[in-house]
Amino acid sequence: MESGKNFIVGIFDDESVLLSAVKKVRGSDVKIHECYTPYPVHGLDDELGYKRSRISIAAFMFGITGTCLAFLMMIYMMGIDWPMIIGGKDHIAIPSFVPVGFEVTVLLSALGMVGTFFVISNLKPYGKPRIYDIRSTDDKHVMAIDLAKNSKSSDELNAILKDSGAVEINEKKF
């Protein structure tokens, strides 16, 4: 974690105020570092200009990998390495490989996607989050603005935040 970074932290009471505030703040040429909310606020990602998450593509790729691995494994084991006749079925009987193929697809897809989510969002056991305001996991919405990334002074930012409905404005150093 870099040290000596200064943030202006605006605290909001309500999601609809936050949404309009994000619009206003971005409209007055201020770069928002990130917003922190106690629950998923719908439409916030659009207001902040975030693109749609591509994590579902990761899930699909992991799923396809699972299907292929499962079928290759079963075909190799039952058909190539040690072929046996069981219940009069073909050695490589695709219909009886479907259930396991499906389960492995789901398993790999789910685990792969969640693993990807943890890695890209930097979530790990005993991960240390940067907390701008401790109430952001309870009932307050928090907007953090990085002073170094904006040309405006902290007084100007304070005024913009106040104007857009922040109930409290703090400065936070990391």
């Binding site: 922190y36 909310t37 789910a110 996607m113 969640v114 989510f117 969002s121 790990k124 056991p125």
Partner: peptide, 22 residues
């Protein structure tokens, strides 16, 4: 246990996608 969760809007966006796909 909370894995360093901070409730960032970007993380919530991914969280919702992950929940939907799951």
């Amino acid at each position: 246990l909370s894995f360093g969760w901070d409730g960032a809007a970007k993380t919530w966006q991914r969280y919702e996608t992950v929940s939907l796909v799951l």
